[in-house]
Each structure stands twice: as C-alpha cells, then as structure tokens.
C-alpha cells in the first residue's frame, strides 16, 4: 500500500508539466524515503532526476518499495483537473494497476477522484556519480530562463564560460551573435536574487539550447537555479523544491567533431 498526501496538488502538476516534454513515460520508485523518478529522453541526451522526500509530504506511507510506471501526459491530464488550492492524496496498491489521485478543496466541500492506469515500463536505472564540479553557478531561475530563451532566438547552441568573475552565455546563428555576461552579485535583499559563482577551475562548454529551454519550464518551481559544470561532463541544472526535494536535469555537452 502506498499513500502520500501533498498540501498543494499544484506542485506535482507543475513538476509534471516541466518534465513531460522530455520524457513521456517514466517509473516513479516509491519507498520509505520518498518518491523518485529518473529517466532519459528518447535520444539519451538529457536526463531528468526527481526526488520528493517522504518528510516533505503531509502524510507518507509506503509499506514496501513500489514501482509506478506512468504516462506523464496522461498524469498531466488528470493533475490539470485539480483546483488551484486543492490538496492531493495519491493512493496505490500492488493488487491494482491503478494509482488514485484525490483532489480535495480547502473547505473539503469538493472531493474529486481520478484513477490513472499504471503501465509496465522497461527502464534501466542509471548510476549518477556524485562528481565534484569545476564550476557551480546559482542565479535567479527567471534570469536563466530569459537567457536561454533569448539566445534560442539567435542560435541552436550556447557556449557557457565560467571564470572567477563572471559567467558568459554565447550563441551564434545566421543573423549574428549574442553574448550575455552575468557577474557575481551577492549584495541583494533576497538570497534568491543572488548570482553566486563558485569556480575551482575555469570551464567552457557548449550545449544544445532547446534542451536548456525545456529545462527552464521548471522556473516556476524554484526562485533560483543551480548550474554545475565540468569540462566534457554533462551539465546539471537543479531546481530545489522547498522542503521536499529537487528536480535535476542533466544534459550531455556538444563536442568538436
């Protein structure tokens, strides 16, 4: 038996909306520690890792480890039916190939029950090494979204360069070139407005912009985003979900042919 209650159905809805274009089917692994999902896009260029800790839920019960394969577009269809302030309760047991989503309005006057068919998904579990990164940049998530969207109108790829003083995002295309330079900014009223650059050694990497633009769909989930880079390694783009976990996106770099 699995049962978990979230104060805001809208949170899971936003999470699924932010990842469902990259991965259409995925298996949620449920255990005493929480809910996890890890899946690569069909081209094996990007990976989504979602972790929702059990202590971040209002109620969390998983008698034994349990896998729930779901079509994320179907899941999104159901989560869209939740009211803005509804709570969400998820229930599933191994006897049925179903997961139930219960949406309850704040005054408990409306209770909606949606049952989603689970599916068997053959997915391989990947070991993601806990690497030390050459550079870590934290910046407002809306700023990162703006940068990748703006550069996406100029070129297909972005060259990210981190030095001690700044991080530069550069793109080139048929119409011309663009460079956006962000300096470290620590003296802000709100911590989430900071741009923090931690550099062990300078890095310069190139990535496909369309994936980064896709990752930035998670902007509404967190005020700030952390970008971790090492030469010739996949970049990690992390959105921390307050009090409950994170969604991380990994993207393999482009390399010289």
């Amino acid at each position: 038996m699995f049962e978990a209650q979230m104060a805001q159905a809208a949170l899971l809805k936003q999470i699924i909306e932010s990842i469902r274009e990259l991965i259409t089917e995925a298996t949620f692994e449920v255990s005493g520690t929480g809910m996890m999902l890890q899946a690569m896009d069909s081209s094996h260029v990007s990976l989504v890792a979602l972790n929702l800790r059990s202590d971040g839920f209002q109620l969390f019960r998983a008698d034994r480890p349990f896998s729930m394969g779901m079509n994320l577009n179907h899941m999104a269809k159901m989560l869209k039916c939740a009211g803005k302030d509804d709570t969400l309760t998820m229930r599933a047991d191994e006897a049925n190939d179903l997961v139930t989503f219960l949406f309850e309005s704040p005054g408990n006057e409306r209770l909606a029950e949606f049952e989603l068919k689970l599916m068997d998904i053959t997915s391989e579990n990947l070991g993601i090494p806990d690497a030390e990164y050459s550079a870590t940049v934290s910046m407002p998530s809306a700023e990162f979204q703006r940068i990748v969207k703006d550069l996406g109108s100029i070129g297909d790829t972005v060259e990210i360069t981190v030095t001690k003083d700044d991080v530069r995002f550069a793109a080139s295309g048929d119409i011309g070139n663009a460079t956006i330079k962000c300096r470290q900014l620590l003296d802000t009223e709100k911590p989430e407005d900071r741009t923090l650059i931690e550099m062990v050694e300078p890095v310069n990497l190139t990535f496909a912009l369309r994936y980064l633009i896709n990752f930035s769909k998670a902007t509404s989930l967190a005020p700030s985003v952390t970008i971790k880079l090492s030469t010739e390694m996949p970049v990690v783009v992390e959105y921390k979900l307050s009090d409950i976990g994170y969604v991380r996106f990994y993207l393999a770099p482009k390399i010289e042919d």
């Binding site: 990947l126 996949p234 990994y250 770099p253 482009k254 390399i255 010289e256």
Partner: peptide, 13 residues
C-alpha cells in the same frame, strides 16, 4: 559540433 550521449557518462546499475 557533435552531440555527446549520456550513455557514456552514466552506467546502468
């Protein structure tokens, strides 16, 4: 430029 795949970075466990 060529696109690297994640398969060479993350091993199946």
């Amino acid at each position: 430029m060529g696109q690297k795949s994640l398969d060479s970075f993350f091993k199946s466990v």
